[in-house]
Nucleic acid binder design. Structure first.
Length: 596
RNA sequence: GCGCCCGUAGCUCAGCUGGAUAGAGCGCCGGCCUUCUAAGCCGGUGGUCGACCGUUCGAAUCGGUCCGGGCGUGCCA
């Protein structure tokens, strides 16, 4: 962060001067690390606050306030720091010169919506596996959380200089798929669906569709039918609303993949037996009761898992875990620096298993990173709904999004609202999702508040152009000086936080930090916007109707504020794009739109 | 039993790599549209941060014990 970096170096220089004058006692300024320069919670504590004096106090063996006083004296006023004062137990509160903020705004204008992003993808090559929902049913709300969380982590990682490959692992092998194909076949032939089979309406629809288009394959059943079922579950049935296809559903909430990786292909190419053979050679497999187990390795003298895990069942079939070993070995072989998998908390036991298997294979298990999110619980009118694909009892992500589209009167509003809803909670929190409440309160979603701010900013710029102002792309420092209102500078300060927010959010894999930042930014702007109606950015008609109004109107100030508006709008746009949420140029309350 | 996550305002949640008077949205009460979008703004209401001990100049934040909720602990995926 430019502004912060300048404050930091100014502070360090001042600290060195304090030391030179003996203010740090025995301690060297270089010893004073781990201090923070942060934005205080309270505005009256300045633009920045630092605990450096309190950190230095221990080494210097001097009271924190004495060091703080000396530091504040050295900081005095220069071209970066406007004022420095000591507060509380030894904080130094700093206010920066407006020019520091003006420089930051100028940078935002220069970088546009790239502001806050790393210049190029040079950090890591990252493989990001997420969703990977069984292709035996549509994308439900729970999978939606995975999709939205994973996708946004991907966006954050890209923004911070990584190259990300997004992959959906298709579980198109094994019991569930066989069962699914059998259910589809039964439905197609008008026979009863197996007890433990799949009962959703879409099963019937798929059966009917396949009977019409590929009767021979339906008749024969078997592998070919299973594959065909998976294909249409992913692709969808043309024109069907109950079977839009997993791919389409995900696209409708802004989630896309680079690769769709088939579990079945691992078996077809012998990758599974190959991986197991290697484990066998290294002594990690053990037969018991006709089945084969992966023996948990030791780690630091302790068992790395609770128990041995089956890789081959006594009926001769491989387990899901066996495929997963081969799958992760394959990921490693593809040469990524980091393998991230997004998993629901119900899969958390899996993490140790995969890591142990990679280690046993002699592969770098530290590349493997699992992102766990807590589960989503579905409610209808306050009643818990057991979501089950087999029972055909689930709520699709599109159903929810479509409802909100209707309420808001805008296509895409539902995707925005659902994304924002999930992203505003940290992954470690359980989510209760009440369908009826979500529909009823859909317009209360905070996403619209943020978008409304963006629409207002856009509206100001439109209006300015219609009045003949040209939107500035850059200002001189003399021109920037017109931007001097306390609230305008405070908001500029807020903008300067954005790059750090993005970095922290990416580093911690916590998209909600961006969400909360945008809400704060929106609040600050909307408050300013309403309160400043007495001192408008643009000349109102009452002034413009007067003769020679240009002579009395401060157009320089208008230009400075317009440039500032562009900067704010850039940060909004950049932030919303990171969340995969749209930035509408115009927004009207749905009830107003209905009136016209 | 063991492992992971959670417990903060009436509700939904931020804040957790220790800092100043614990925040937001929704709800509730009261105000603000003849000038850049009222999906807005301003003010008010509302909290023993699950409990107790400990570490610290300082704990919602770190450690321990306990209580409560979710998930896992399959030769299912």
């Amino acid at each position: 962060m430019r502004a912060t970096a300048r404050v930091r170096s100014t502070l360090q220089a001042a600290l060195a001067r304090v030391a030179a004058k003996g203010g740090l006692g025995e301690a060297n300024p270089g010893d004073v690390r781990d201090f923070v320069i942060e934005r205080p919670k309270r505005a009256e504590h300045g633009d920045y606050a630092t605990n450096v004096a309190m950190i230095a106090a221990k080494r210097a063996k001097k009271p924190p306030r004495a060091i703080a006083e000396a530091l504040a004296l050295e900081l005095g006023a220069d071209d970066v720091i406007r004022s420095a004062e000591v507060a509380g137990p030894g904080f130094v509160n700093l206010r920066v010169q407006p020019a520091v903020l003006h420089d930051e705004l100028e940078e935002i204008l220069r970088e546009g919506t790239s502001y806050g992003k790393a210049p190029s993808a040079t950090k890591e090559r990252i493989h990001l596996e997420f969703v990977s929902a069984n292709p035996t049913g549509p994308i439900n709300v729970a999978s939606g959380r995975n999709a939205i969380y994973g996708d946004t982590v991907g966006r954050l990682l890209e923004a911070t200089g990584n190259r990300v490959t997004r992959e959906y692992y298709i579980n198109d092998f094994g019991n569930q798929i066989r069962l699914f194909a059998a259910s589809v076949r039964a439905a197609a032939k008008g026979e009863p669906i197996p007890e433990d089979g799949y009962h959703g309406e879409y099963v019937q629809e798929l059966g009917t569709f396949l009977t019409r288009n590929a009767p021979a394959i339906v008749e024969s059943g078997g592998e070919d039918l299973a594959r065909l079922c998976v294909t249409y579950m992913l692709r969808g049935i043309p024109g069907s609303s109950s079977l839009p296809g997993i791919r389409t559903s995900l696209a409708s909430i802004g989630v896309y993949f680079d690769n769709w990786f088939s579990e079945e292909s691992l078996h077809r190419w012998g990758a599974v037996p190959a991986a197991l053979a290697e484990l066998e050679n290294k002594g990690f497999l053990k037969a018991k009761d006709g089945a084969v187990f992966f023996v948990m390795p030791d780690k630091d003298g302790k068992a790395a898992d609770d128990k041995d895990r089956a890789v081959k069942k006594s009926d001769g079939n491989y387990t899901y875990f066996a495929s997963d070993i081969a799958y992760h070995a394959d990921k490693v072989a593809r040469g990524y620096d980091r393998l991230i998998t997004v998993l629901g908390a119900d899969h958390h036991g899996y993490v140790a298993r995969v890591r142990n298997a990679l280690e046993a294979l002699g592969l770098p298990s530290e590349k493997y990173e699992a992102l766990l999110y807590q589960l989503v619980y579905i409610f209808r009118n306050g009643q818990a709904v057991k979501s089950s694909k087999r029972a055909g009892n689930f709520v699709t992500i599109e159903e929810v999004a479509d409802e909100i589209d209707d309420a808001a009167g805008r296509k895409g509003a539902g995707s925005d609202a659902v994304r924002f809803f999930f992203l505003s909670r940290s992954a470690s929190t359980n989510v209760d999702f009440d369908i009826d409440l979500a529909k009823k309160e859909s317009l209360d979603n905070p996403v619209f508040y943020v978008q409304y701010g963006y629409a207002r900013l856009s509206s100001i710029l439109r209006k300015a152009e219609s009045q003949g102002f040209s939107i500035p792309k850059s200002l001189s420092s003399a021109q920037w000086q017109k931007l001097a209102h306390e609230d305008e500078l405070a908001l500029s300060m807020r903008l300067s936080e954005f790059p750090q927010i993005v970095e922290d959010a990416a580093e911690s894999r916590e998209p909600h930090r961006v969400v909360f930042y945008l809400q704060e930014l929106a609040r600050e702007f909307q408050s300013y916007f309403t309160r400043m109606k007495v001192d408008p950015i643009l000349p109102p008609d009452s002034i413009r109707s007067a003769e020679n109004w240009e002579k009395t109107w401060d157009s320089e100030k208008t230009m400075a504020r317009l440039a500032w508006i562009v900067a704010i709008r850039n940060v909004y746009a950049a932030g919303l794009a990171l969340l995969g949420v749209s930035a509408p140029e115009e927004m009207r309350r749905p009830s107003d739109a209905a009136d016209t």
